[in-house]
Structures are given as C-alpha cells and as structure tokens.
Design a protein around this nucleic acid. Structure first.
Lengths: 239, 239
DNA sequence: GAGCGCAGTTGATCCAGGTCAAAGCACCCC
DNA sequence: GGGGTGCTTTGACCTGGATCAACTGCGCTC
C-alpha cells in the first residue's frame, strides 16, 4: 500500500494540466515548491462519489481526468445539479465554510483526481503569495460562475438555457484542446435538465428542435454544432 | 476632506458588528491588529450603486447598515437579483477573480459600508492565520449559499420559493437582534420576483394567498409571520 | 443471440405561472 | 392639499414547459 501511494504521488511541475489547474500562472521554480502540496491521486469509477454532503471536509480535489457533477439535495429527495466539472477544475471548495461538504460530487465518467489537503494548502498559501492570489481567484470565479447560473435559471427560457449550456461546454472543451464543434455529452438528458431547471423531455425536445433548425446535429450523446452564430443568438438576446 | 476621511476611519475592535462581520471569532487582541485593515466608511443613499459590473476591483465592502442587492445583467437588458445583503455581510468578492466586478451592488435603503482594500486584506491574511481562515470560510459560505439559491431556482415551485425566501430573511434578521416574526421588507415585489425567478404579480398573489391561509399577515412592505411551522412545511417537502 | 433495462424520443394533455390590463393606495413634491 | 408617481393588488386569459404515457433502440448480461 505504501508503495502504491508513492507511485500515485504526483508533481504539479510536470502535470499536463498545470495551465488550467490550481498552479496556473506560476513560474517553473514556483511550481516545484508546490509539488509537495498534492498528496495523491485517486481513481473514481463512473457512478462513484468523491464525497457526499455532510462528509467531513479535509481536502480539495483537482480533476485530472473524467467528468464529475456536483449536486445538492432537499430533505424530500429532490435534487439539483449545481455543476459539471472537467479536467483542471477544483472540487470541494464548498466544504471550507462549514468544515463539512455541502454537496455530493459524483463521477459521471471514470476519472482521476488529485487530493490537496486543505490544511496544507492554507499553510502554503500563507508562505506563498502567488498561490494565495490564485486560490482566491479560483474561489471568486466560482462565485461569478454561480451568479451566471442563477441568471440562467431565473431569467432564461428553455431554449436559451440549453443553447447557453452547450456553448459553455463547447468553450470549456476547446480550452482543453478538444473540438469546440464536435463533442460527446458525458451526462444524461435528466442531468442536463436538472442543471438547467428543466425536465428531461424538454431537453430532448429542444435537441430535436435545434437539429431540425440546423443549429446542430445530435445522436444520443454525440453533438456536432453546425451553426455557432445562431446558437449564440439563441443563448443571448433572442428579442 | 482629509479631516472627513479621518473622522470616518473605523476600528473593527470597537464595531458592534464584529460578531457578524469579517473578524468573527477573533480574540480582542487579534482584533486590534485588524483595525488598520479597514480604510474608511462610505455612505450610500438608496438607489445608488456601490459598484457596477465592469468597474475595476480594489476593495471589498462590509455592510455596516442598510440593505443592498446584487444583480447581474444580460446583454439584452434582462437582469437577475443574485442576493440581498444586510449588516455584517461582505460585498464585492466576485471581483477578485477577474480584477473587475462581475455584478452591480445597489443600495435599496440608505446605508453605510466599510471599505477593505483587497491588497491589504491579502497581505494581512498571509501574516495572520485566523483572518485567512475566516476569509476563506466567508467565500466558501457564499458558494454554498449560491448553490442553495440554485436549488431554489431550479427545483422549487413558486409557493416554496417565497416561503423559503421569507424564512431565510427572518433568520438573518433574528441573528441581528431583530424580530424573526415581524419585519419590514426592504425590497419591492419586482426585486423579490427577480431573485426568485418569478414575476412581481406572482409574488403579490402568493403574499395574498399566504395571508388568506393564515401563515402571515402582510401590508405592503410589513410582514408578520403568524405560523412559522406551516411556512416551514411549505418551504421544504410539501409532498 | 435472447432478453432485460436504461436512456432517449415523441405525442397528447394539462396547469402553474406568465402576460396584459385596470384599479387602488401610499407618499412625495410643488 | 392636489396631483403625480411608483408600488401593489387583482382579474381574465394565455402559453411554455410539465406530466403522463407509449414506444424505440442500444448495450449489457447470461
């Protein structure tokens, strides 16, 4: 076991995700001093949870590969997907405030995460200004993202919601070197619906509608965007 | 002007809000070392903005008195209220990530804020672990709050939304020493509606309905909750 | 390769909440 | 103190998306 853990130990300085992840913007020298921060990688199989709401909070997790969703749940069992996370994005920030996680993080595709013990991150951030700054930026950006999701949930119509969702996904995939036009959805219609405040049937109908209108072609999980301009128009003003 | 500013300088160590605000949980001695952090108070009249989306980010603002709303806006003019803030709560965190504010902060009642220059906060947080911890907790809690608003916007029915909103307001007022049962709404029906993803007419009708059902009595902005238990039931399960 | 089960599609119908319109009411300013 | 203005209430009607239900098709297991 000790050997296995040692094998899993990773170095931010040589990680292919360093341009997307927590150490973004650090110099190579600064990066090396960060290597001690990440404790170990952890594999998560599709359907498994990284943590649940209520679990004690100890570490943040940086997604190395795979696809995750976060979700909050009401007393009576309804739930709301609050985000989909891909490589380089940070999971678990919600746990800092209360000392326990406030949502579930579930793998919707086999993946791997880097565990960053929070106590150590805090300590390193005090000694190391660029890390502190970057960590604060990451948290702040999460708040900005949440606000734009609120805008989407509170003021957009179904068509606008799905268009905005697809464009956001497309951009994030493009930032990771994948095609912005051609991609495979990692989530079900029901998960997309939960995130957007719609029912799965509505999501399905919208995909069909967008296809009929020539904005994209879709077959189950595969999507090819064929008219980005019009899709952008649908997401935005649409007066 | 120099004199006016000097007059406005405040000390966290003697502030009546220290149990609610950024320095919560610090010892009196620790508090004193925080006094240098807050630069000055600033008065904001009803209707005025503390900052707008796009403004360069320099400082966070702690609400001392009054009532604020934050809002994000789409290209085509629709907007979404993302929060209502009262004494002790922190405004402007959204600006850290991009170096410019991501939303508007508008006073919906005359009020006063303490400006906390962000560069100074960052620097103090590095030297001063309890402040760092507390600041991280505040940001994390904002994320948790946003997630619960997403749950509300995405999965609740109109009745549940308004009940949850009123109970939340009631609890936050109670935490500040005001009555939990009897309070005055600082915001219009339209602002409540924008926050909850409803139209103002729907909000108005729900108030009338709740009153008919004996959950509360309402007259314009004054609300008296007469049946907290039932209101809680409406906000939650309601199977 | 038969059969099961889950994800997705599509149709028919319904209703919560939106829209449009018209008063009503408090407060402010001249 | 009269008139305006902005907020709120209420009514009548409409519609976008939910709900209910049937069916399709892919992938997995045995």
């Amino acid at each position: 076991m000790a050997i296995a853990l040692a094998d899993l130990k990773v170095a931010c300085s040589t990680c292919s995700l360093r341009e997307l992840c927590l150490p973004v913007g650090l110099t190579p020298k600064q990066l090396e001093s960060l290597d001690e921060l990440v404790y170990a990688r952890r594999r998560i199989a599709e359907g498994e949870s990284l943590f649940h709401a209520g679990d004690p909070f100890r570490a943040l997790y940086a997604v190395r590969s795979g696809f995750f969703k976060t979700r909050v749940t009401t007393a009576d069992g309804r739930d709301q997907v609050t985000g989909f996370l891909m490589a380089g994005e940070l999971l678990g920030i919600d746990g800092i405030g209360a000392g326990q996680h406030g949502c579930d993080a579930v793998a919707i595709e086999d993946g791997e995460v880097c565990a960053i013990p929070y106590a150590k991150l805090e300590e390193t951030a005090r000694r190391f200004e660029p890390l502190q700054q970057h960590f604060h930026r990451v948290m702040s950006r999460e708040i900005v993202r949440d606000h734009s999701v609120m805008l989407l949930l509170g003021s957009m119509r179904a068509e606008e919601k799905l268009a905005a969702f697809l464009l956001n996904l497309s951009q994030r995939l493009a930032a990771r070197g994948y095609s912005a036009r051609d991609f495979v959805l990692r989530m079900t219609r029901a998960e997309i619906g939960s995130f957007l405040g719609l029912k799965l049937e509505t999501v399905s109908r919208l995909f069909t509608q967008f296809q009929k209108e020539g904005l994209l072609s879709v077959n189950r999980r595969s999507v090819r965007i064929t008219n980005v301009e019009e899709l952008t128009r649908r997401a935005g003003l649409h007066c």
